[in-house]
């Protein structure tokens, strides 16, 4: 089931806020359309980087994510929720979260329930790593705020956790104010971040 509510992104071409839709329960058709728009841009960008001899380490780290597969693997499972932000008729960002099976790790809230962000990504035309002039800003912030709001709605008091790709670590630590619990050897060595209720409240202010 899909539900839409109003949110706002920053149009980086004008500097103005732009009205957008937050979609709770992104449909298969919406995913198909997003992938068909995102994929060619990502592939072109990777080809340019390959031809230019740019080291793989500086390529966008989520470029191989296949949202069709993620949607198919989680469709109908109530432990998962997929959110999207749509603006100008196009999907500007996607996020897959789980609401069960990822207990908190920070000592003061160890074992408590939280919203775990499995995957979150902006459309390629919003990524500074991919284009010189990104279209929309605040996509990541809107989606992380959505995860915090979901955590509050579920009674998890704003607790949110995720494993970050190296290119996004600063965003989660600095912009979102999450606690960095270090590298997780059981998750490809990615750093694990988590919010406390106080951090979540501060982030939403």
């Amino acid at each position: 089931m899909s539900d839409r509510s109003r949110t706002y992104l920053k149009d980086l071409r004008t500097g103005q806020l732009a009205e957008a839709s937050l979609i709770d329960g992104v449909s298969r058709d919406e995913i198909e359309r997003s992938e068909s728009l995102w994929r060619p841009i990502l592939l072109e960008s990777l080809e340019i980087r390959q031809r230019s001899g740019i080291a793989k380490g500086s390529w966008p780290e989520h470029s191989h994510w296949d949202w069709r597969k993620k949607h198919a693997a989680t469709e109908g499972l109530i432990a998962y929720r997929m959110f999207g932000v749509e603006c100008e008729g196009d999907m500007q960002g996607l996020m897959l979260v789980s609401t069960a099976g990822h207990p908190c790790r920070i000592a003061e809230q160890r074992g408590k329930e939280q919203v775990y962000i499995d995957f979150v990504a902006s459309a390629p035309w919003n990524s500074r790593e991919l284009v010189d002039s990104p279209r929309y800003g605040l996509v990541g912030r809107v989606l992380i705020a959505t995860a915090v709001q979901l955590s509050l709605a579920e009674g998890f008091r704003g607790r949110v956790g995720l494993h970050s790709l190296p290119q996004s670590e600063t965003f989660y630590a600095t912009n979102c104010g999450m606690t960095d619990l270090g590298k997780d050897t059981k998750k490809e060595g990615l750093r694990y971040f988590e919010t406390t209720p106080a951090q979540a409240a501060a982030f939403l202010r």
Partner: peptide, 23 residues
């Protein structure tokens, strides 16, 4: 009490996990 959740929330979590594991 242990999970700092309402009883409804505990049951919803149980259902989510049960469905996920069963699947």
């Amino acid at each position: 009490d242990q999970k700092d959740l309402s009883k409804t929330a505990v049951l919803r979590q149980a259902l989510r996990l049960y469905q996920l594991i069963d699947s």
